[in-house]
């Protein structure tokens, strides 16, 4: 059952990362990879919220391990940073990785606090 829940979550999360990335790039033609930052921050916000509530194994597998895990990514983030360095955009490379970590941590804390507040 857990395997199925993780699979469903991941089958939604991974394509949503791709589609969000496309939508962000179509809207803003920027040298900065906003799409990946967006999914990583949103996934961190949601997982932070899941961590705050007494989530059962169903929600943890479906939303946490499956959906948030597949929506967010380190492989894309690291490759983008490498490529930005390669094209000489060192500031963007550094900003990408630092903004991801700072915004991700902030989003996880915000998600945690919001879920705590809403959950009483």
């Amino acid at each position: 059952m857990t395997v199925l829940l993780i699979a469903i979550g991941a089958a939604l999360g991974a394509p949503l990362r791709y589609l969000t990335d496309r939508a962000m790039q179509a809207r803003h033609d920027s040298p900065f990879p906003w799409g990946t930052l967006t999914v990583n921050v949103l996934g961190s916000l949601l997982l932070g919220a899941v961590a705050a509530i007494p989530a059962g194994p169903t929600v943890t597998a479906l939303v946490g391990t499956g959906f948030c895990g597949a929506l967010t990514t380190w492989s894309t983030l690291s490759y983008e940073t490498l490529r930005l360095t390669r094209e000489g955009a060192r500031f963007h490379a550094l900003a990408n990785v630092l903004a991801s970590v700072v915004a991700g941590l902030g989003a996880a804390s915000l998600g945690y606090a919001l879920a705590r507040a809403l959950n009483g």
Binding site: A10, T73, L105, A108, Y112
Partner: peptide
């Protein structure tokens, strides 16, 4: 690889 790696578990584990 995108599904294998995770950023959300990374930050939430730090927070925890």
């Amino acid at each position: 690889l995108g599904g294998f790696t995770t950023f959300s578990a990374y930050v939430v584990d730090i927070q925890r």
